[in-house]
Nucleic acid binder design. Structure first.
Length: 284
DNA sequence: CATCAGGCGAGAC
DNA sequence: GTCTCGCCTGAT
């Protein structure tokens, strides 16, 4: 077990922000009173990533990871982008931009996770014209049917994310049965492309944002929006700025003169997440 | 019953 | 290049 205290880290907000579909809430327990009037709420989450299973518990700024210090240092510290100072990024926001300040304040615990590229490609193909609840369901089904079955130290079963080969070999009929609908063909064709090496996901890390985006656009079912999401969450290119229906609406309503991208070079994607989350979850 | 959910491909022009 | 249209599916 590794316990840290960290500012600008809310596992709840990261989960709700819909960038990682295999981070799920397990339970909520009302803890014994730690002070006279405040009841401390502990929230427990599970995460499956990079072939590993991790349980995480958070009470305010204290976060506990159920893993060894070595695994935390090697894997999760990087995964949760713990070396980045999100307070500094929020400090870049124009003090005259009330809306952006409110959005960042509302979602101040969000971090841009460093996730697996292949998993992001498939996950965000599934995300199109879809809601988070159903995206999770589709991905769970894909994992349990096409992912390798594994076990934790204490014997808990979980499934790895399916490899390209497994999805390339799946029949369209079976993919439809995972509730993927018309995205089934996209998943299949993309898996074949990656398996054949028509698009090399490994090579994307060495590329600039625009170059990586152009490569991703070669994949069937990957348009501009999905490509930007893969760049942001799978390649950690934080200059990526995915525009979906929420962001598009906000840009029109709040930034009719245009969003000041030049002002936030290199951090557009991080700010996009604050805006997205605020529009999705925030009160009117 | 219609509409919507973090779009995209195909075809028309 | 830009525009329109149809699309699986489950929730409301």
């Amino acid at each position: 077990m590794v316990t840290i205290t960290k500012e600008h880290f809310s596992i709840k907000q990261i989960c709700e922000s819909g960038q990682c579909f295999r981070l799920v809430k397990l339970e909520e327990t009302e803890e014994v009173k730690t002070t006279e009037r405040m009841q401390e709420k502990k929230e427990k989450y599970s995460l499956t990533a990079f072939g590993r299973y991790l349980e995480i518990e958070q009470s305010q700024n204290e976060i506990s990871f159920d893993c060894t210090p070595e695994e935390f240092e090697q894997i999760w510290k990087d995964y949760f982008d713990l070396d980045e100072d999100y307070g500094r990024i929020m400090g870049l926001i124009d003090e005259a931009d009330d809306y952006l300040l409110r959005a960042a304040s509302y979602g101040s615990g969000i971090r841009i996770l460093r996730q697996d590229v292949w998993e992001m490609v498939i996950s965000f193909i599934i995300s199109q014209q879809n809601n988070i609840r159903r995206i999770r369901k589709c991905i769970d089904l894909l994992c349990s049917r096409y992912g390798e079955e594994k076990q934790t130290g204490d014997g808990k079963k979980y499934y790895d994310f399916p490899r390209p080969e497994a999805l390339a070999n799946a029949s369209l009929e079976d993919l439809y049965a995972c509730g993927l609908g018309y995205r089934s063909r996209y998943i299949h064709d993309t898996a074949v492309s990656v398996l054949k090496g028509e698009v090399s996901l490994e090579a994307l890390n060495e590329m600039k944002h625009d170059e990586a985006k152009a490569e991703l656009l070669k994949l069937c079912g990957v348009g501009v929006k999905v490509a930007e999401c893969v760049c942001l969450f799978g390649l950690h290119k934080t200059e990526s700025f995915p525009i979906d229906t929420h962001i598009d609406k906000v840009l029109q309503q709040r930034y009719p003169e245009g969003f000041p991208f030049e002002k936030y070079k290199g951090y557009e994607g991080t700010l996009q997440q604050y805006i997205f989350y605020y529009d999705l979850m925030g009160e009117k």
